[in-house]
């Protein structure tokens, strides 16, 4: 039944802050089972779009549907199917990693025994078991990303929305996260994540959308968007940034 619905559908999402337009009408269909990369420069509106898609930020206009369930009129139904790792949002970081997982699990209405078992596995796989009872606030940036991912995965969501999952993560952890996400997609899950690291997107994604100035500039499968060129070339061309500096910063070189 869910097969006919896209895993995530956005229609005309728009948001402005104090008269400044952050997102100007985003339409997006994320097919079930896809590994979807949302690309964009800093300030393009990636975080705003994803926040509206998962119910963290009320849009000025438009709507979002998770597997056919409206995030804003049926939040309970939609949020059950959803695992989210927001960026720039604190975790309840005065809990230890294990406690945080227990909190998220029970908050999702899971059985305590299942929470215990899955949490132990996740902590083990993500190499967080050694941290013991260290509070999350004392974790390194990379460890915080990993525990955030574990919290999003714990209840076995159908759709995983990750904001900048690879930022501040060392290469070893990044490889680990990539591996976990690929297994998750291979098992029928859908991943949407935002990034501005081209090579990660190029390596992982089946579909790509490029967001700039609050609108979708390019969208499609990786091959469609990239064509014959590298993703980075397409990205820079679409975003229209300047690629070289001229005379101005001469004082830097001395």
């Amino acid at each position: 039944m869910t097969g006919e619905h896209p895993a995530l559908a956005l229609r005309g999402l728009a948001k402005s802050f104090d008269g400044k337009i952050a997102v100007a009408g985003v339409d997006l269909d994320v097919p079930t089972g896809s590994f979807y990369g949302l690309l964009g420069p800093n300030g393009a509106g990636k975080t705003t779009t994803l926040s509206m898609a998962v119910g963290l930020l009320r849009p000025d206009a438009g709507g979002a549907w998770v597997l056919g369930r409206d995030v804003w009129t049926d939040p309970v139904g939609a949020k059950q199917l959803l695992g989210v790792m927001p960026d720039g949002v604190r975790l309840f970081d005065r809990l230890s990693g294990g406690e945080l997982l227990a909190y998220h699990g029970l908050l999702r209405g899971m059985d305590p025994a299942v929470v215990d078992q899955r949490a132990a596995e996740l902590l083990d796989v993500l190499a967080l078991a050694d941290a013991g009872r260290t509070l999350v606030v004392d974790y390194s940036a990379g460890m915080k990303k990993k525990i955030g991912l574990a919290c999003a995965l714990l209840h076995g969501p159908r759709l995983l929305v990750l904001d900048e999952p690879f930022e501040a993560v060392d290469p070893v952890s990044a490889a680990l996260i990539r591996d976990i996400l690929q297994r998750y997609v291979a098992g029928g899950g859908t991943v949407v994540f935002s990034s501005h690291v081209m090579e990660v997107v190029q390596r992982l994604c089946s579909h790509v959308a490029i967001l700039a100035e609050g609108t979708i500039k390019r969208v499609g499968t990786l091959e469609q968007v990239r064509g014959e060129r590298s993703l980075e070339e397409v990205f820079v061309e679409v975003v229209g940034g300047r690629t070289a500096t001229g005379e101005e910063l001469a004082w830097l070189s001395r």
Binding site: L95, S96, E99, D116, G132, R133, T134
Partner: peptide, 14 residues
Amino acid sequence: KASPAATGGVVAQL
């Protein structure tokens, strides 16, 4: 701090 190793399930810890 040398944090003590976690014992028992995570739910019991919380």
